[in-house]
Amino acid sequence: MNSSAPPSTLPGIPPATSPGATPLITARDLHLAFGLTEALRGVDLTIRSGEILAIMGPSGSGKSTLLHILAGVLVPDRGSVVYNGQRISTMNEAERARLRLAEFGFVFQFGQLLPDLSALDNVSIPLLLGGMSRREALARSEELLGSFGLSSCKDKRPPQLSGGQAQRVALARALVAGPRVLFADEPTGSLDSLSSEQVMEMLAATVRGFGVTLVVVTHDARTAAYADREVIVRDGQIRSGFEL
């Protein structure tokens, strides 16, 4: 197995806290429609600090939409999302963008690595957006990639990486700015069994080690098995009555 131990230092993350009962993200009565199609029809969800939550459901159920709203990428038509005491569903685009940059990380299935840039450059992007100098950003990125065992890949372009390597680079980029919450949308969707396992192992171990909350959307049960709990989204609503 190629996966290495989770990094021992993660810049910007406070020391590990145990997953407590404190709610970090609270979503109430979320509604969102695209044109005439209702994607979400009244969703309530509470995500606790430090936990790993899997959002599952059939295609078209609205789970990706839910993720985007929780992460402040989309704004619901009705309902509210409160993150760490701040009501993000009413913030404007710029404020939400700043929040995402500072607090959230993203590991999505497609095209989230810019294909023309090297792995190292890709990882450094969040730092550059935050105003860090290029030199320092590259140094930190290199350090992080090294701790993920990806030093050999740092100058390669995403098309030259294997699926698993690319997702781990994506993970590095998501973590480089020290986020509190990681949002993953089908992180293992295009991977084979072994790579899926490696990516999820690394993901789970990393976030647990540093108290980072992880919200992962997946239709794959073995991926969801790495989570603490799951919610099922069907037809725009949460149908599972098995919350803790």
Binding site: A221, A224, A225, Y226, A227, I232, S240, F242
Partner: peptide, 10 residues
């Protein structure tokens, strides 16, 4: 049943 399965898988 799904929930039970997932628990076991966890």
């Amino acid at each position: 049943q799904r929930h039970a399965h997932l628990e076991r898988m966890r």
